[in-house]
Design a protein around this nucleic acid. Structure first.
Length: 565
RNA sequence: UGGGGCGUAGCCAAGUGGUUAAGGCACCGGAUUUUGAUUCCGGCACUCCCAGGUUCGAAUCCUGGCGCCCCAGCCA
């Protein structure tokens, strides 16, 4: 019952902020922002950024804005906006009144572009996309000046106004910064600032605009307008920082946030790019953004991951600038830790094997009180029905086995969890030799008491046949075979790595009756099996549970599961 | 010598010239256990990419290598 909340470990960004606060920079104020583009669902990598930005705001008595970076109406929509808001809230963060859109600043962005033009620092370029690319040069050769680079301020002002007025077709012209075509940093070779997108309806601004600003122009200005002090982003934007600074240094805005870059999260056996996740969804390789195998927050929520476990994970992985691939084990340890404390215990038999207790009176039964948590009495108890006919798990019986196998064997005894010790007297098989039923006997003196004169090592779970609820239980495995599918050397892309057995659905599972009122989202520990949550497909008539994660299983190391699932 | 970044255990990660080189995950023992769970206790880097150098003293400073990542969208 770990009540102590984990304190967020420090990192290089916090060191920088500490120094800034101490030096009185920004009057000691700290303001961050989380700036998703609404073109997909949030994933665990975004959670890292959310926890960083909102976490810093909390710890420094600062603020963190939620800002939708919505400058590309082509790819964005309101479904994503709503999903992102829900995910941030679910993770446990509150942006209060500080919800913004880059599109809120379109007028100002246009105005700053005009400033740049007037200062001779931006120009309208008539080159098409291919030509711009050709003029840009390569990584090792300088670019050449566009023929339109030296247009007069008047012409540029006129043309830019007409771009805005919708006089030109998509792609006909762009507004470019006038910086340095020979810069070793490609981002400084006269980057595009505005492009024409006519006839698209923007989810926020409708048809008000037919020119849209680019990220490199929008982001620094949006940050500055909001008074952000520390603009945290991932490493691939490091090369953009000179441009971020250039924009703010060349317009009439006083605020100049500091951009600091950290490395993105990579998780073993999954992919973290929105493009690839979108592909999985669109190709039907998964059942949607909230498929429990997806590393999306929606998927993980459906799978049974808790907000606390994700926050704990983000604390544990740290924030640095080094490339990293985090093992799934870290994530799993986080959910187990949270759920071990907080998930009520239940019994469920996933691969049922019939047991009949011959010396238990036919037609009778009893009710047994069982604790909801072995270490936490405050979690109360529930009632279990015991009777002559039970189910146990097929994996908990072997006709013969070595001493290491502590479960039920022919002629051997085992403890039924919360109930009696039983002995297996006879194994009944069908014509194919398949075990269909076990005839057992029980020791009536072993309810809540140790058996006399012998030791019974094993404990297995069970449910009463007459009282059980039939259910579907879904088990999940890694989505992709390779630990880092992006760097898999063999063959093509990450899709070659897809694990066709990542989802297995077990039907005809039996649950203890107390689970009948379970609601979607509720999480339980099915003893000896793992943590399971009620799926959104669930109904009382057709229960569906998802396995969030198994329990740690040291037996599996001794006796590795043989494709048995 | 195109530019930018990174290199501490199997994985993540502290460390900022003097510490026995934190911590977590994983792993390996062992104790307790009506969950092979939990909990507890113990182990797990004579060495920090490599090679030189500076220094009484280097993971930390200097020099030279090596390896990996990012950048040539009118995406973000």
């Amino acid at each position: 019952m770990s009540e102590e909340k984990e304190t967020t470990p420090t990192n290089f960004i916090r060191h920088i902020i500490d120094a800034d606060v101490k030096a009185g920079k920004n009057e000691g104020r700290v303001a961050t922002r989380f700036p998703p583009e609404p073109n997909g669902y949030l994933h665990i990598g975004h959670a890292k950024s959310i926890c960083l930005n909102f976490g810093i705001a909390e710890d420094y008595q600062g603020t963190c804005n939620l800002r939708f970076d919505d400058t590309n109406p082509h790819k964005e929509n309101t479904e994503y906006i709503e999903a992102i808001k829900e995910d941030v809230r679910w993770l446990g963060y509150d942006w209060g009144q500080r919800l913004f859109f880059s599109s809120d600043y379109f007028d100002q962005l246009y105005g700053y572009a005009v400033e740049l033009i007037k200062a001779g620092k931006a120009y309208v370029c008539d080159l098409d996309a291919d030509a711009i690319r050709a003029y840009r040069g390569t990584l090792t050769e300088a670019g050449r000046a566009s023929p339109y680079r030296d247009r007069s301020v008047e012409d540029n002002l006129d043309l830019f106004a007409r771009m805005k007025a919708g006089e030109f077709e998509d792609g006909a012209r762009v507004l470019r910064a006038r910086i340095d075509m020979a810069a070793p940093n490609m981002n400084m070779r006269d980057p595009t600032l505005f492009r024409i997108r006519r006839g698209v309806v923007h989810h926020q601004t409708g048809e008000a605009w037919c020119i849209y600003p680019m990220y490199d122009f929008t982001h620094p200005i949006s940050d500055a307008i909001e008074g952000i002090t520390h603009s945290l982003c991932t490493l691939e934007f490091e090369d953009h920082r000179p441009l971020y600074d250039w924009v703010l240094d060349n317009i009439s805005i006083a605020c100049h946030p500091q951009q600091i870059e950290f490395s993105r999260l990579n998780l073993e056996h999954t992919v973290m790019s929105k493009r690839k996740l979108t592909e999985l969804v669109n190709d039907g390789r998964v059942q949607g953004w909230d498929d429990p195998r997806m590393p999306t927050l929606a998927g993980m929520r459906r799978r049974g991951y808790t907000p606390k476990s994700l926050r704990m994970f983000c604390d544990r992985i740290g924030v640095t600038k080094s490339d990293n691939v985090v093992e799934m084990g870290v994530l799993e340890a986080c959910v187990r830790e949270d759920l071990n404390d907080n998930a009520p215990r239940r019994m469920a038999v996933l691969r049922p094997l019939e047991v009949e207790i011959d010396n238990y009176p036919e037609g009778e039964g009893e009710v047994i009180e069982a604790a909801n948590h072995p270490q936490n009495e405050a979690m109360g108890s529930r009632q279990l029905s015991f009777s002559r006919r039970l189910y146990i798990d097929r994996n908990d019986f072997r006709e013969e086995a070595s001493k290491k196998f502590k479960r039920l064997v022919t002629g051997g005894e085992v403890r039924l969890r919360n109930a009696y010790v039983i002995r297996c007297d006879e194994v009944i098989k069908d014509a194919q030799g398949e075990i269909v039923k076990l005839r057992c006997s029980y020791d009536p003196k072993t309810l809540g008491a140790k058996p006399e004169g012998r030791k019974v090592k094993g404990v297995i779970h069970w449910v009463s046949q007459d009282h059980a609820l039939e259910a579907e239980v879904r088990l999940f495995d890694r989505l992709l075979h390779h630990p880092s599918p992006d760097t898999a050397t063999d063959g093509g892309g990450f899709k070659d790595q897809i694990n066709p057995e990542s989802l297995s659905s077990l039907r005809g599972c039996f649950l203890e009756a107390s689970l009948s009122g379970a609601q979607p989202g509720e999480v339980f520990q099915f003893e000896r099996e793992g943590y399971f949550c009620v799926d959104k497909d669930h109904s009382p008539a057709q229960p569906v549970f998802n396995r969030t994660v198994t329990l740690r299983d040291s037996w599996a190391k001794i006796d590795p599961p043989r494709k048995s699932q």
